[in-house]
Design a protein around this nucleic acid. Structure first.
Lengths: 193, 193
DNA sequence: CGATTTTTTGAATCATATCAACGTACGTGG
DNA sequence: CCACGTACGTTGATATGATTCAAAAAATCG
């Protein structure tokens, strides 16, 4: 049950079996049904979630009522509203499940204790934060410089599995275009090969 | 010379005069001429800069050669490529001065020593990081949900002074539109009031 | 003052949105 | 097993917003 997390951390830092065994105590497993919320806008984000099954999304709702997907998370990924989790401020995002999913939750106090118990993880969480930073900035850059078609191609190149698993309307929302436009872009791409 | 920094930190955390006096030793002041670089893409970002005069910008260059402004910084603001600064990775952004400017630089080792010397600042830098996070996410949200005109209005509401100080072409680049489009948007806004 | 940069304007064009309709797949209750 | 409803994707026609290219006007600098 913790194998995926073990491998995930192991890829980034060295961790003895004993150290990892101590880690597991701080996580709680949770099933999340399709359409169920893990976090709703306005709440304080108590946990960061490591996905072990299914698929979740983080999104915001703008003043016109349109949803905008910020991030998807499939197994081996983390998801949360970090600004809220770290700062204790109300979340600007919501997180829900696109499919029945399984996550390992680490709440803030558990994280503090975990870092005391296994200091080697300090580095791991710093790396995680930096990766999140970089991904976020890459998204800004991308949205400023690339056309919808280019963004779609980047998306399927970066997340090849995702593009088949999740509804097209969700991908369109992630790309910042309408589902109709995405459908047309896909048609043109088919045609040209 | 450090008054602005003193006030800036004082607004966020309590700091005794003595503690602050110790801080100043870790910063180095630097003048940056208009068009001069503080950081070039590909370098490792050694410093975070607190702006005490003038105006700087962080930007990226896309594969078509277009510049995209990520952030402006005027007095009382910080600027750097945080992912590079924290992670030691090559910077994805460049930073240069739009006007003759003055900054206080804090390089990574100075920052580590400073945090040892004045632990109260841990909290300050954590808040800084979170603020950066939130600003970044707000930008993504904004670019996904708002029209160019709305984004411009948000911009002048958020940075009223900036919109007069810096060339329109730079603002257009920040908003992700052409200077021509910004000019037209401004014309329409004038007309309607 | 002239030279250079910045901003504005016009016309044509392109990308994406919008509105409305239709097609297809899937699952549920009869 | 079929009929129906629901969710998802596609298509067409048209509208809108922003870009591009070219040029003129205005502002700034040495």
């Amino acid at each position: 049950m913790f194998d995926l997390l073990r491998a995930h951390i192991g890829k980034r830092i060295k961790l003895t079996d004993d150290e990892f065994r101590r880690c597991t105590a701080y996580f709680t497993q949770k099933k999340i049904r399709k359409r169920q919320f893990l976090l709703q806008e306005g709440e304080v984000c108590r946990d960061i979630a490591f996905v072990t099954g299914g698929c979740l999304r983080a999104y915001t709702v703008d003043h016109k009522g349109n949803e905008h997907v910020i991030q998807f998370a499939v197994p081996d990924w983390w998801i949360s509203d970090l600004a809220s989790y770290l700062g204790g401020s109300p979340a600007m995002q919501s997180i829900d499940a696109l499919q029945d999913s399984k996550v390992l939750l680490l709440d803030r106090s558990a994280r503090d204790e975990l870092l005391n118990a296994v200091p080697a993880l300090e580095r791991f969480f710093r790396l995680l934060l930096e990766a999140n930073y970089i991904a976020t900035h890459r998204r800004i850059q991308d949205s400023l410089s690339a056309s919808a078609e280019e963004r779609y191609l980047t998306f399927i190149a970066t997340y090849p599995d995702l593009s088949e698993q999740i509804p097209q309307a969700q991908i369109a929302s992630y790309l910042g275009i309408t589902p109709q436009s995405l459908s047309r872009i896909r048609r043109e791409l088919m045609r040209s090969r």
